[in-house]
Structures are given as C-alpha cells and as structure tokens.
Design a protein around this nucleic acid. Structure first.
Length: 329
DNA sequence: AAAAGGGACAACCGCGATATC
DNA sequence: CGATATCGCGGTTGTCCCTTT
C-alpha cells in the first residue's frame, strides 16, 4: 500500500458497498471532488483517494452511459484503435458516457477475439501469419466466405474478410500498417502520407495470382460493377508503400472504390468526419477536418486502413499527431 | 448436484506526467 | 530548481456469476 494518500488511514480494498457509494456520491455532488486525496476523510470513507477517484470516474459519475456497447460504438472503437493503438482514454473520448476502463475491458473480452477469429492481429490489425498459412492451404480460396465469418466489427473487416478469403496469403503480406510506422518526411518535417496519384508505379503492378483474379472477377459482378480492378502483386511490392495496405490499394487506390462504398457507408462518412474533427480537437488542433463529400475528389484522397477516405489535410494532421506522440516518447 | 472453467467487469498497481511547494 | 504530491493512464489482477463437464 504505497499510495501517499492512504498512508495514514486504514484503507479498505475490494468491491464498494452501496453505503460507500452513497457516501461518495453525496460528498462529490455537494462539494465536488477537489483534491482526491482528501476526499476519503471528508466523505467519511476508509478508502484511499485513488480508489475513490476510480470508483467515481468508472462507476458513479452521473453522465455514464449504462448498458452494453452498441455496434456503432464497437465500430468506432475498432476504427480508432487501428489508428491510435491501446490509447483507451483517447478512444473513450469518442464514446460519450463510456470510460477508458470500459472500452479496454470490452476490447480485451470481445473485440480482440472477433478480430482473431477473422484472422487479424488485434494489435496491428494486420493479418495473422498462421491465418495466412491456413488460408494458403485451403482449397476453396476463391469463394468469398463472408458469411462463414463471425459478425464483422466494422466495414473494413468485412472488406478484409472478403478479400482474404479469396486471395492466396502469398499476396497478402502485412496488409495494415498502423500510423506509428509512418516515415518521416525529408528535413524532419511532419510525416507525409502521399496522395494516391503520387504513386504512379502502383498502376504498373499487375496481378499475378489467378485465384485473386478469379475472386475479383466474381466480386466485380456484385460490388464492383463495371469496373476494372488493377491489383498489385506483393512479389513486387515496394517497401516504400508501407503506409498502405494492399487491400486498401484494392479498395481505395483506384476509381472503382466509389461503387464499393455502400450508400449507408457514405452517409456514415459524415459521422466519421465529425469523429476526426473531434479527434483533432482532442489533441489541441481546432481545425475543421470536414470536406464537402459531394465535391470530394477521390483522386486527391488517401484511403486510410480504417476503410474511409479522408482529405489530405486531416490525414496529415493525424499523421502529425501520431508522429509527435512518438517523438515525445 | 458439485466442481471446474471461462467470461465479464470491477478494482488495483505501477509508472510517467504534471502541479505544487 | 529539486523534491514531493497528485493525477491520469494502461496493464494486470481479483471477483462474481454463468456454463459446461
């Protein structure tokens, strides 16, 4: 028991009783918490200040949302986690009424397993290597097997599930690279995510795997209507493309993506934009990340691993924030 | 019916960052 | 400016309860 705040008094540990809750609620409602270390004494509790703080923040606060995490909240968690990693407090800020502890617990007990079941590494959101191996030894690799997977946790996982189920693992190396791996721009400027058109060589890659070709052709008849889908081959995949994943290339590197985004998703795009704006605000960047979706120029956009287009400035900003955080460490 | 196992969630611990003295 | 106190965060552990054996 090394907390400074609980040196003096005998402190109780373990679960809180309703009586203790009531004391804490009454005290904080009237006086506010002030210095947490003084709360136990003033509220008549045999707890340390730290324990009081935690109990209030995670359980007693009146603005907490009760009930289980919704599908939408789950998707937000996955999307932001893909970008920010285990920064639970940051993630929780996007979910009003949810605590970092709640998000963390939900991640560990639920989302993590779903991602693993879908063959994704929950830490990196990349394909798991043994999943690759398994896929590589399956005969029915051409059939999109979305329905055989668990409920998707987000749009991008659907996408990935569809893609990976039809494509040999040899073509699917390290599909998702999280932000922290964004390289520094020259002169130590903020990291820069190039626009798609600045990768002219992408278009020169040719798809080599007949299985993938077959899969794409079958998919094209459903969701990529009338579009040709250039695919790059990982055998000639240059490492400089680290910040893109191949499925993003497939999904977003080319014109056809517009027909791949379901209408519902386009509507949700606005929500995502608001999310980004709020994300930027939370790191002290009060810029507007929004852009006119009707005028949105896909050729001038980059597809982030979370499966959404963002305009370059918001991407740069996120990249910069992520980079700055890394530099700080 | 009882024990074991596992999931969900609450709470604790240690550490780094920040504030205050 | 260093020492100490406090806060906030993320990882980990503990506890309860339900399901399975």
């Amino acid at each position: 028991m090394s907390h400074q705040c609980c040196r003096k008094q005998k402190v109780k540990r373990g679960l809180w009783s309703p009586e203790e809750d009531e004391k804490l609620i009454r005290y904080i409602t009237i006086h506010g918490h002030g210095s947490w270390s003084s709360v136990p004494n003033l509220a008549g509790l045999e707890r340390c200040g730290k324990s009081c703080r935690l109990r209030w923040i995670n359980y007693l606060r009146p603005d907490l949302k009760r009930g289980s995490i919704t599908e939408k909240e789950e998707r937000i968690i996955v999307d932001i986690h893909r970008i920010l990693g285990n920064r639970w407090a940051q993630i929780a800020k996007h979910l009003p009424g949810r605590t970092d502890n709640e998000v963390k617990n939900f991640w560990n007990s639920c989302i993590k397993k779903k991602l693993i079941a879908q063959g994704l590494d929950p830490n990196t959101h990349n394909l798991l290597s043994d999943y690759n191996y398994k896929l590589n030894h399956e005969n029915n690799a051409c059939k999109p097997s979305y329905h055989s997977h668990q409920q998707p946790t987000s749009t991008v996982t659907v996408l990935n599930s569809q893609m990976i189920s039809g494509i040999s693992s040899t073509d699917m190396k390290a599909p998702l690279i999280p932000f922290p791996m964004i390289p520094h721009a020259p002169d130590n400027n903020p990291p820069y995510l190039p626009l798609l058109h600045e990768f002219p060589s992408i278009l020169t890659y040719e798809y080599q795997n007949p299985k993938t070709q077959a899969f794409l052709e079958s998919t094209a008849s459903q969701s990529l209507v009338g579009s040709s889908v250039p695919i790059l081959s990982s055998t000639s995949h240059p490492s400089e493309f680290g910040m893109f994943d191949e499925s993003c290339m497939w999904a977003g590197g080319y014109e056809p993506i517009q027909s791949m985004i379901p209408e519902k998703r386009q509507v949700e795009q606005q929500v995502e934009i608001e999310k980004i704006t709020s994300e930027l605000a939370s790191v002290g960047q009060n810029m507007d990340a929004s852009f006119e979706t009707s005028n949105f120029d896909f050729a001038e956009s980059t597809l982030l691993p979370c499966g959404m287009y963002y305009n370059q400035s918001s991407i740069d900003q996120l990249a910069w924030d992520s980079w700055a955080l890394q530099e700080k460490k």
